[in-house]
Amino acid sequence: MRKIRELVYSADINRFRLYSQVVAFGLLMYGGYLAIDLGANLPTFACAFVGDGRGGTCYLYPLQHQLNMPLAQFIGGRGVAFLTGLITFVLFFMLFNKAWCGFACPLGTIQDWTTKLRSRLGIRYSAYSERTFHGLIKIKYVLLVLLILLSLGMSNAVPGIGKLSEDFMTPYCMICPGRTVLPLFNGDIKQLVVDFSSKTKLTLTALGMAVTGTFFVGAFAKKRFFCLFCPMSALQYIFSKAGLLRLIKDGSKCTKCGNCSRVCDMGIREIADDVVSKNILQDDCMMCFKCVAACPEEKCLDVRFLGLPVFSSTEQGFFKRMEGKVKDEN
């Protein structure tokens, strides 16, 4: 048992993550062709605009559809359907917590591939200053609130404005780069358009295409550029305390060497600087566990599933991984 644990803790988690991402990408983007369907409440960007090929659907899509109903109906059957969807989403999410982002999200995977390309080309990455970072991370909550309010606004009249146009249908999807980028992998270019049918559609689709352009540059210049603005990440964080998978920090063992924060694709500083919190999961964390792999302190960072150890930082694992890394680089 100890041997196995030692082996796992010394494992190259990044490689494992790469495999997991490839499998998840295949499953979520092409699983449909093998008649795999994980349902419509997935806590990850299994984009609904990817046609038959997709193996599941991002929860934001049905959520926005379901919210498009008169408030009174939330008490009835459709309210039950809404609740069922939400509960399914939460259950799926609880299982892997934010690791959905690090290990499964197809849009995240694409960003990681872009990062790999940049690194190969020897072009340096950008990073936000601490202040900018803390300003930017609020955007995803704003997007989440907008997504909810706009969806509700189509079926519920706002005094003075009235009901919103149905052209606001799935407002977030319209500006999400997942909608424009992910279907490309199934050979579908239909989403790469500006829709002139109404002012709302025009604005939303033009915004969507602008976001797409920014997405590519952003993901190239900055690791996991888009994830900082992802409303799914915001929605997930609301429930992350209930996650079965946890990232635990033992602050007394931390030397604040900053290795964890340095390798963090999201640029989270608290992982290194916070020596008090036990549950160190931050709202932008994608649970890629690169930090755990980069931590040289015995059991300082600990990944637990239902309290059982899954992965942990160890001296031995750290040095083994670094040896491998330098060997790979040269």
């Binding site: 500006v194 295409m209 352009g213």
Partner: peptide
């Protein structure tokens, strides 16, 4: 018909414009 009210040219144009502007911004900043 979709093609009556949608435009790939504008779509890809906006994407390209933002990609180029973004890329330039990063480059100039650096």
């Amino acid at each position: 018909q979709r093609s009556e009210y949608t435009s790939y040219a504008y779509g890809l144009g906006i994407t390209a414009a933002f990609a180029i502007a973004g890329g330039l911004a990063v480059y100039i900043y650096r």
